[in-house]
Amino acid sequence: MAETWIVLGASSSMARALVRRLAARGDGLILAGRDLADLERDAADARVRGAAFAEVVRFDAREPACVAPILARAKACEGTVSAAVFVGSMPPQAEIDADPGLIEGVVTDSFTGPARLLQGLAPIIEARGAGTVIGVGSVAGDRGRISNYVYGAAKAAFATYLSGLRNRLGRAGGHVLTVKPGFTDTAMTWGIEGMFLVASPDKVATDILSALEKQRNVIYTPFFWMGIMGIIRLIPERVFKKLSV
C-alpha cells in the first residue's frame, strides 16, 4: 500500500535529503513549509525522482490555523499516512539572553508547533493501524549547555513528547522514530565556529531510512554521538555546571 508523508520544514537540507529517498521509493509527499514558491521546486524534484505525487502546503509552526488544512489533506489520502518533522529554530543564545521574548518562538518552532499537528495526526494513525512519525530533535536536547540551552530545552521537550507519542501510537500499530543528529552541515550551522565531526544531510537521511527499516525508536546520527552524549549525560551536575562544552 502506498505511503504518504507529511514533511514539516520540507525545505531544510535534511528534509530534502530524506524526501529524495522517499520519492525514489515511490511514496507520496506533502511538503509543508513557509516558502511555498521554493517548495514547488522541491515538489518538482520529488516527482522527477519517482514520487507517486508531491504537493506543497503552507505550514508555519507559529500559525495554528495551518494545521487543519494539512490534516484534512492527510485524511483524504488512502493508505498509510506518516509524518517527518524537521522544523526548529536556533537563534544565538546571546540574542535570546538580550530578548527573552524570543523564547516563545523557539519553543513554538521546535516543539509546540509540530506537536499540535502530530496531535491531530495521531488519531488518523490509530484509526488506520499504521503510520510512522519521524521527529528530528538534536543532541542539544540531551543536556542544557550555556551556549544554546533554550534551543536545547525546546528540543528536550519535543523528545519527551515523542517518547509519549511512541507509547501511545505503538499500541495502535504506529511507530515513532526520534532522530538526534549531531553537528550537521545545514544552512542553520553554516558559518558557525567550533563545529566538529560534521555530518552531511545525506548521511543523516541514510541513517533515518535504515533506522526506519529496523523500527528503531531513538537514534543518534552519526552513531558515535550516542557515545559522546552518553558520556556528557554521565557528568555530575556539580561538575557540568562549570564546563563550557
Binding site: 525545505s11 531544510s12 537540507s13 530534502r16 516558502d35 514558491a37 521554493d38 521546486r41 544552512a187 553554516w190
Partner: peptide, 9 residues
C-alpha cells in the same frame, strides 16, 4: 561565502 538552499536566499 554563502551557500543558499532556496531561491529567496
Amino acid at each position: 561565502i554563502a551557500r543558499p538552499e532556496r531561491v529567496s536566499a
